[in-house]
Design a protein around this nucleic acid. Structure first.
Lengths: 239, 239
DNA sequence: GTCATTAGTGTCAAAGTTACACTTAGCAGT
DNA sequence: ACTGCTAAGTGTAACTTTGACACTAATGAC
């Protein structure tokens, strides 16, 4: 920070705007979905965009990201995984003025979503909200396609090395559901036996005594053991 | 970016300042060193700080980081590894005004350094420059201790999974020097045989026909094969 | 009962990791 | 010129992880 710069009277310089954008992922219908909002105003009106907003003067960045998340999905802080992604600041990425955006990505369990569809906030710049397939999104405003791509790459990395995938599922889930979530995000088939034995060794989940109906033999429901996260974070969890 | 926020007339809001800070690492005397500057002015005058400066209105973030790097070390873009680290933006991290800083980290080969000591820039906020042990830095200004810690963590990660360690060494190096660089950064002893066989399999280096004197048998000098980087980046290089 | 379907476990070969011992090449002292 | 020291550089064998695949178990439909 401002250490070796020319001596600086802060008030006399033009300053960029700073926003946070939050790439919100969930899994619906066995697909990785991202939440997008439709722009109402110039520029890029009518196009879809990653939700975001200006950082208030007395608000931390993460705080702002949580606020956006709450405004968009009514999901509270405890129920999501939120992580800073990257900061995008090319001059010219927004035609109005210099805007630097700190992008976050969030994982929300489908069960946590009281879908915002129809329940749009009042004083909004958005003309609509919806979940879109993350791999085949509509044409996006500004440089948001780049941000989304970056978020997907990071999500895949995270999933391979940490236990963060649980955040995409309801609190209790079958191992098949978990495996499908991983397969969806990684776009890759995993071996059932190997997936399960690795999970067992990691100690990341514990069995509940409930079962879920399926087409065949009922599947045991599992729960994520959050006290195990710390360990797991360090070693690779899945192939 | 600014999508769902209240309708927004940019001119009427107060805006934060945005800076870039660059954590510059090198290896000197078998130690991981970080470049720090001594602050001349309030606040935190007399304390050491990570070099940084304000982002100009028409300048990209990475561009600004390269500029800082050049100003501080006279090292050009080709000779360094530079990567965005994290954005720190707690209100109150700078007592003067709201400052959001985009932190970068840089790896510079010791041979590239025309040391800035004595050759300080003129119109500077800094009263001194120096290389410090990254693990036992002096008391740092603002939240720079946190930034440094974060940078070290990231550097270690990077080193384990990519071939980025070469950036810390001169163009030609012995395998022992390379191993020592890794050991220094990871703070961990590595096995000579395993280190070498892994390197051989990876194809990351090629032998030159020069040798370097040592206490015993002379050591072959190697060169980094930059055409191999692309592949290596994806798989884990060292234990 | 049989069949279809999905849950869940076990095995084994191939690949990778780790610890450690060995050979090689230069230098210095006698 | 031999001996011993130092550091370069290679090899091997036990162990662990991985990946492919086959097998058994529990339920509903017929």
């Amino acid at each position: 920070m401002a250490v070796t710069a020319r001596t600086y009277d802060a008030s006399q310089y033009e300053r960029p705007s700073v926003t946070v954008d939050v790439v919100i992922f969930t899994i619906l219908d066995s697909e990785l979905k991202v939440l997008l909002v439709k722009r109402k105003n110039w520029p890029c009106e009518g196009m879809w965009a990653i939700p975001g907003g200006f950082v208030d003067m007395n608000e931390g960045l993460e705080e702002a990201a949580y606020r956006e998340l709450r405004e968009e999905t009514s999901v509270s802080g405890q129920d999501v995984y939120l992580e800073q992604l990257y900061t995008f600041g090319n001059p010219g990425r927004d035609p109005r003025t210099r805007v630097i955006t700190v992008a976050y990505f969030a994982l929300v369990g489908a069960d946590k979503l009281h879908l915002p569809e129809g329940g749009l906030r009042a004083a909004s710049d958005a003309a609509g909200v919806g979940w879109f397939s993350a791999y085949t999104p509509p044409l996006l405003a500004f440089d948001h396609a780049e941000i989304l791509e970056y978020a997907i790459t990071r999500l895949r990395y995270k999933l391979e090395y940490t236990a963060v995938g649980f955040q995409l599922l309801p609190e209790r889930f079958t191992l098949r559901e978990l495996q499908e979530a991983y397969e969806t995000v990684l776009s890759e088939k995993l071996d059932k036996g190997n997936f399960r034995s690795k999970l067992r060794k990691s100690g990341a989940v514990e069995a509940t005594d409930a079962y879920q109906e399926t087409g065949g033999r009922p599947a045991r429901l599992y729960r994520f053991r959050d006290d195990a996260v710390a360990e797991i974070k360090t070693r690779r969890l899945f192939p």
